[in-house]
Design a binder for these strands. Structure first.
Length: 287
DNA sequence: CGCCGAAACTAGTTTACCTCA
DNA sequence: CGTGAGGTAAACTAGTTTCGG
């Protein structure tokens, strides 16, 4: 069953600037106990493990042959083997790292477990029993919904949660794990798009602000070249004159009263114009 | 403190399936 | 109705990080 983007709940905390960091609130891998759980270690390593020897063969085989062989692997063992195998049987020492060079040591003793893993690769729901071609499992709407709910609670799973969820959904823990990996990737991609859009807006606002300031500078320069008009003109745009000290400042800012008694030369063009900094100023300024 | 192995993770890719012109 | 293009999601691979012994 096809699950549309809208069904993925990608907008769960992807709103806009206010929510900008909310996505990360649930990102607490450090809170998740590191696992010595044999289940996760088994399923985690098994596929990488299997792929190593078969890849060597498959490189020299045509795609159809590879597909055929995979189909045989998937379907040649009883589908009744479920993830209980991975859930409780293996020992911590049976885990295999993805780090290269460590596999061969365990290949001999792990062969059977690998076959079991491969037998499980199609998942527990065997709608297409008898189909020799390896087919990709499409999760049902219910399965996706449950996974989404779980993802909302925590976007990472500890091994226990993974197994429970897999059992609940009738999937292998590995499938749940992959789903969460892909889901995190989608979330990150979505967040990146949001960030990109936000930066684009900031850039546009800053460009506009820059344009206005340039225009203001031009006005001020024109005034400077026409001193005979100087006293009769109101200061351009946002600049205002302090009546007591005749300093020019931003309309929104107040002139420091401590400077009122100083003998300050009238120089409205110099430093009193303050420019706000930061990209977000541009968003809120000049409404 | 550095090293090693295991586990979990990310980024990128492949593959199967679906929709639509 | 068949087909190819394009999109999406499931699954995979390689490399990195983290953590405990």
């Amino acid at each position: 069953m096809m699950v549309g983007k809208e069904d993925l709940g990608l907008g769960l905390s992807l709103g806009f600037p206010q929510n900008h960091h909310s996505l990360h609130l649930n990102l607490s891998p450090s809170l998740i106990p590191s696992s010595t759980d044999s289940c996760s270690s088994l399923h985690n390593s098994s596929w990488n493990d299997v792929s190593a020897p078969t890849d060597a063969n498959s490189e020299s085989l045509p795609a159809e042959t590879r597909s055929f062989l995979r189909g045989i692997d998937v379907n040649s063992l009883p589908s009744t083997v479920d993830f209980e195998e991975e859930a409780g049987v293996s020992s911590p020492n049976s885990t295999i790292s993805s780090v290269s060079g460590k596999r061969s040591e365990r290949e001999g003793t792990r062969g059977d477990e690998i076959d079991i893993e491969r037998a499980c690769s199609r998942g527990i729901s065997d709608e297409e029993d008898g189909d020799t071609a390896r087919k990709k499992l499409r999760l049902s709407k219910d399965q996706s919904a449950i996974l989404e709910e779980s993802f909302k609670e925590h976007n990472t799973l500890n091994p226990k949660q993974k197994i429970v969820l897999a059992k609940q959904l009738g999937l292998r823990p590995r499938q749940v794990e992959v789903w969460f990996q892909n889901r995190r990737a989608r979330t990150k991609l979505k967040q990146t798009e949001v960030d990109c859009e936000l930066l684009k807006r900031c850039c546009e606002n800053l460009t506009e602000k820059n344009r206005r300031l340039q225009k203001e500078v031009q006005e001020l320069r024109a005034l400077k070249l026409s001193p005979q008009f100087y006293m009769h003109m109101t200061p351009p745009t946002t600049l205002t004159m302090c009546p007591s000290c005749e300093r020019v400042g931003n309309a929104s800012s107040t002139v420091d009263p401590r400077s009122h008694n100083r003998n300050v030369p009238i120089n409205p063009w110099a430093p009193a114009v303050t420019i706000s900094h930061g990209p977000f100023d541009a968003l809120h300024h000049r409404s």
